[in-house]
Design a protein around this nucleic acid. Sequence first.
DNA 1: CCCTACGATTGAAACGTTTCAGCGAGGTGA
DNA 2: TCACCTCGCTGAAACGTTTCAATCGTAGGG
Lengths: 334, 334
Amino acid sequence: MAAGMREVAEKAGVSIATVSNVLNRPQVVAEPTQVRVREVMRELGFVRNGSARQLRAGTSEVICVVFPGFSAYFDELTRGVEERASEHGLVVFACATNDDTTKEETYLRVMMEQRVRGILLTRASNVFQSSGPKLRRHAPVVLVDLESPAHDHCSTAADDGHGSEVAVQHLHDLGHRRIAWVGPTDVPQMVTRADAIHRTAADLGIEVLDVVTPPKTLVPAGQFAARELHDEGMPSAVICGNDLMAVGMEMELKSLGYSIPGDVSIVGYDDIEFAAAATVPLTTVARHPARLGAAAVDLLLGGCGTRDDHTHQQLVFPSELIVRSSTGPAPSPR
Amino acid sequence: MAAGMREVAEKAGVSIATVSNVLNRPQVVAEPTQVRVREVMRELGFVRNGSARQLRAGTSEVICVVFPGFSAYFDELTRGVEERASEHGLVVFACATNDDTTKEETYLRVMMEQRVRGILLTRASNVFQSSGPKLRRHAPVVLVDLESPAHDHCSTAADDGHGSEVAVQHLHDLGHRRIAWVGPTDVPQMVTRADAIHRTAADLGIEVLDVVTPPKTLVPAGQFAARELHDEGMPSAVICGNDLMAVGMEMELKSLGYSIPGDVSIVGYDDIEFAAAATVPLTTVARHPARLGAAAVDLLLGGCGTRDDHTHQQLVFPSELIVRSSTGPAPSPR
DNA sequence: CCCTACGATTGAAACGTTTCAGCGAGGTGA
DNA sequence: TCACCTCGCTGAAACGTTTCAATCGTAGGG
C-alpha cells in the first residue's frame, strides 16, 4: 500500500541510497538523476516514513508545547513559538491538559517516547516536579512562564514581580487605597503576581482584598469575581490575574451598573491582542507572550539539555504597564 | 545516554524479547520476572523508543487536529476529541495554521510522515483539495465542520442549514424585517450559514445586509462589523457567524449606545461556554463542538480510511437555537 | 518411566530509513 | 603512460523495537 524508498529506487533504476540522498543531500546527486527520482516519487505518492528516519537519524523535527487549554494567551504564545520554530524547519504540536495530571503524564510520556526535539512546558503541575529529571534526560525541556525553584532548567518568563509593582504603584498614584486581587491560589505564576502585589501594597499602605478563583482563569472567572466583590464590598480598583478575567470583570461590573474607571479601575495581565479592543480598553501588564515563546525556542535550540556543558539559563523579560482607559483616579470618598 | 531494551534485558538477566513482552503482553510473562524487569526499567530510567516501536508495529497512538487558531470554539471541540481519544488510549496533538497555507502543508506532511493514527481537519483551505487523495492514503482523515463537496471523506458537522433557518424564523417571529449577516466570505462553513440565511430570509420577505469580515473570526471582527453597521445604517437584528464575533458586536454596540435587545437583537453560532455568560446572554445556534469532535474520533476508529470496504459517512448533528436575552421584539418603526 | 502438553523464555528476522566506506569511470597534471 | 583526484553512485551495516517460530524445563497422565 504505502510505497517506500525501495519501490522508488527500483522504478527509477537507482539504489536506495541515492533516493535517500535526493531527499537529504541533494548537492551530491546529479541533476538528471534527481529529477527522475523526484518524478517517480510523485508518481508513486511516496511519503517518507518519519519513524524510520527518526530511528536511524536520531533527530526529530517536532517541538511540543504543553498548556492547560486553548485560550488567547496561549494562542499568542504559540504563535511566537511557531514563528521561531519554522525558521529552523521545525514543527510545533500543542496539547491541552485541562489541568488534568493524568493527562499531563500521558502527554509527557508520549513526547519522551517520540524523542521530540524539545518540550515547552507551561503551568506544569506537580507532575513536573516528580518526573522532571527523567523527562529532561529524554528531551530538552524549557519552562515558559514557570520558574523552576531549583534553577535546574532553562526558562523564559516575564518579570511579573516588577510588573506587579508598577501596576500597584500606578493605582497608588491615582489615589487608590483599597484594591482587590483576583486570581487562583494554586497556579504558581498567579501566586508570584499576588505576592508582589501584596508586598508592594503593604509598602505603600494599600489594603488588598483577595478574591480566589478556580484555576480556570477565563472570562467567567472574572465575572464570578465581580459578583463576589459586589456582594462583599467593592474596592476602588481591581487587579485581575490575566486579561481574560479582567474582561469578564469589566463586563460584569458594567452590567451591575458600575462605571469604569469612574467607580472602579481595572488592571489585567498579558496584554493579549484583545485587551486593547475591550469595551473599555484595558490597562494591563504586558508580558509579550509571543516573545516568551520565541525565546524559549532559542533556548531549546541553543543546546539546552543536549550538551553536557550546558548551564541552564533563566531568561526574564521586562514587563511593562500599558495604561489604557480602564484605570483612572479613585472616586473621592464621601 | 538513553538506556534501551538491550541494557534493561542485560541487567535483568533476561532476553530482549522478554522485556518487550513485559511491555506489550504482560500476561505471557511470569510474575516474578515481570517485577524484576519493571524494577530495572525504573532504575535505568528506561523510556521506550516510540519511533522504533512504530516502525516495527506499524501503529501510532497519536491523533492530530488541525485548526486555524486556538480559540474557545476549538478548545471545546478539542476537549471532545480528547475525551473520546483517551478512552482508546490515544493522545491528541493540535496545531494552528493561522490560515497559512504553507504551514498547513508542512503540518500535513509531517503528520503523514509520522503515520499518525488519524487526522481531524477543520477549516482546511485549498491544500486539502489538492493533496487530499495523497493525504488519505497515508492516514485516515475526518473532516470536522467541513463538508467535502465530493462526499469522498468521512465528516461530522452540525446542521447549519437548519440552524440558520430557525434563527431567521425566530427573528421573523419577533417582527424583524431587516437584518444583517456578519461573517467572512472565504470560509466555507460561514458561507453555508450565509446561504441558508439568505434563502430563508427571502422566503419570509426579510431584507439581509451583508457585512464581510476577515477570515479571523474573533471578537475584534465583531466589533469592526458593529462600527460598520453603525455607519451604514443599523438593522434591527444581526446574525454573527460565531459567538466570539457576536460578543464583539454586543460590546461595541453597547459602547455606541445601543440597547440589546431593545434597539438591536443579536444571534451567534456555536454556543461556546461563554455565550451564556456574556454581558447580554447570547441567543445562539448551538453546534455542540465537543460532540462533533467526539463523533469524529468514532469515525476515525470505525475504520475510516483503513479498510477498503469502508464507505464514507457524513454525520450531521442537529443544531438548535438557544434563546437567551440578546434577542427580542423588533423596535416599532416610528 | 516415557510421552505429551503447556508455560516461560528466547533467537533472529523484520520494519524503512540514514550514513559511510568504497568503487568505477572519467579527467587532469606530470 | 601512470598516478591521483573528483564525481556519482551503491552495498551494507546500523537504529531499537515487535513478533513468531522454536527451545527448554517441568508437571501431569498413562
